[in-house]
Nucleic acid binder design. Structure first.
Lengths: 141, 141
DNA sequence: GCTAATGATTGTGTCGCCGCAACCGCCGCG
DNA sequence: CGCGGCGGTTGCGGCGACACAATCATTAGC
């Protein structure tokens, strides 16, 4: 079907990308861990992180999670049942509900973020100079 | 529950890791695309890539995919039904079956690899010097 | 040769992800 | 004030990713 355009293994972009992917998805995927730590499935963790970052309406959240509205409702239901988020009426539009994180929710989000954002040991083991270079280069994206 | 050890946003390792994750999982996750291109679910794509890389027994494959043996059987069944892999008897141990990719399977694997391994445009847009640095640093992992 | 371990398979069941159709309430517009 | 549109909710159902138990063949160790 699709023409399988081959990759050039000598291309530095291809090589760097491959290594990044290997590190992120193969060697250091801690999603399972994060889910267990907060006792939620991964979509709910993502939803929690999202509302912790910034509250918003259900539709808004659905968009940010790339799911449809009904599913967003279900996910938020679960989070609310656990006391991690609350629904508040939009002051100007009574149709909307604003979903925001409770203190417990913020704590749980921080836990998840700490696990997911914890760099792998191999990365920490890099010389400070390389790390700074890495940070600088990646910041340009 | 778990002590939420906070992350230091000034730590270059944390920052670099965050950027890498954002790029790999948030902005350029092409798994859906790869699955559609070869008409398989993602675990099967992973399995296919694995056997294409190197044939092995079912148990071996189960280990590499981090699933149990029964599930590996199911996955391989599907791939075999599509003519992408074949089972061969182990010459010395008749209990074992060696799973290897057919020519079709190798082609499908190449397609998936081409999609998954295709670096995002932002990465390609980096100056050659930075790209080389990136490649060099990441290679040290 | 009997037995225990090993490899593969089949069947069963659970859980998470997620779209879709239908419905209700509120808003805005003519 | 009636009506279409939008936001939210409920219910339904499918699909994928598994794990677990049980079974069968083979092999290996005593």
């Amino acid at each position: 079907m699709t023409a399988p355009r081959e990759l050039d293994p000598a291309d530095p972009a291809v090589r760097a990308w491959g290594r990044m992917r290997a590190l992120v998805v193969d060697q250091h995927d801690r999603r399972r861990e994060a889910c267990e730590a907060v006792g939620l499935s991964f979509v709910r963790v993502k939803a929690l992180l999202e509302v912790a970052r910034e509250p918003g309406t259900l539709s808004d959240l659905a968009d940010r999670l790339s799911v449809d509205r009904p599913y967003a409702t279900v996910v938020v239901d679960e989070l609310q049942k656990r006391g991690l988020v609350r629904r508040e009426h939009h002051p100007d539009d009574r149709r909307c509900k604003i979903v925001s994180a409770t203190p417990d929710g913020l704590r749980a989000a921080a836990t998840a973020r700490a696990i997911l954002g914890d760099p792998p040991p191999v990365l920490r083991a890099l010389p400070a100079e390389d790390l700074a270079q890495l940070d600088r280069i990646l910041a340009a994206l």
